[in-house]
């Protein structure tokens, strides 16, 4: 009797196994990405970034720098968002995905600026485009700004 119940529960749970794997991989990937973002943001501590339109004192050279990223949410998050659409409220599963995409794009902008000899970035703009299809959710974020080299 006990075995029968056990087997029935196993069979009922079987369809959820792939979902669980997807959740696990997605959560692991997200944690790893956040760690990488924090590490790289630490490298840019003290590197002035602003969305002000004014040029800093002693500016010598200015050029356009940009960074972009396409990030997709895993199928588990997309499914949760689908339920959320029915009941309304805050999309807690999707919010961190978009935030990670923005921070990644800004970091790439800063890396681009620094590798080309700039020491600050001003007038930063963020542009987000939705490139999802019916089964999944993905966003493209571009960050661009004026990289400035100042006299030192």
């Amino acid at each position: 009797m006990l075995e029968v119940i056990l087997i029935i529960t196993l069979v009922l749970l079987l369809p959820f196994v792939p979902m669980f794997i997807i959740w696990a991989i997605g959560a692991w990937g997200e944690r790893r990405h956040i760690r990488r973002i924090l590490e790289r943001e630490a490298q840019f501590r003290g590197f002035p970034v602003s969305n002000l339109k004014r040029l800093p004192e002693g500016a010598q050279e200015a050029f356009l720098a940009s960074g972009s990223v396409v990030l997709s949410a895993d199928a588990w998050k997309t499914m949760l968002a689908g339920f959320r659409k029915i009941f309304g409220g805050r999309f807690k599963s999707i919010e961190p995905v978009i935030e990670r995409a923005r921070r990644e794009a800004i970091l790439r902008l800063l890396e681009d600026a620094r590798s080309r000899g700039a020491d600050c970035v001003h007038n930063v703009r963020l542009e987000t485009a939705n490139i999802s299809n019916t089964q999944s959710l993905a966003v493209e974020v571009i960050a661009y700004g004026t990289a400035v080299r100042t006299r030192r």
């Binding site: 991989i25 997605g26 972009s68 895993d74 993905a138």
Partner: peptide, 21 residues
């Protein structure tokens, strides 16, 4: 997105879609 196989797989587990970037 998700037209090619790699992006389709990446779409399921989430993360950056480098080809599209």
């Amino acid at each position: 997105i998700g037209r090619d196989i790699m992006a389709g797989l990446k779409n399921i587990v989430g993360g950056e879609l480098k080809g599209y970037t």
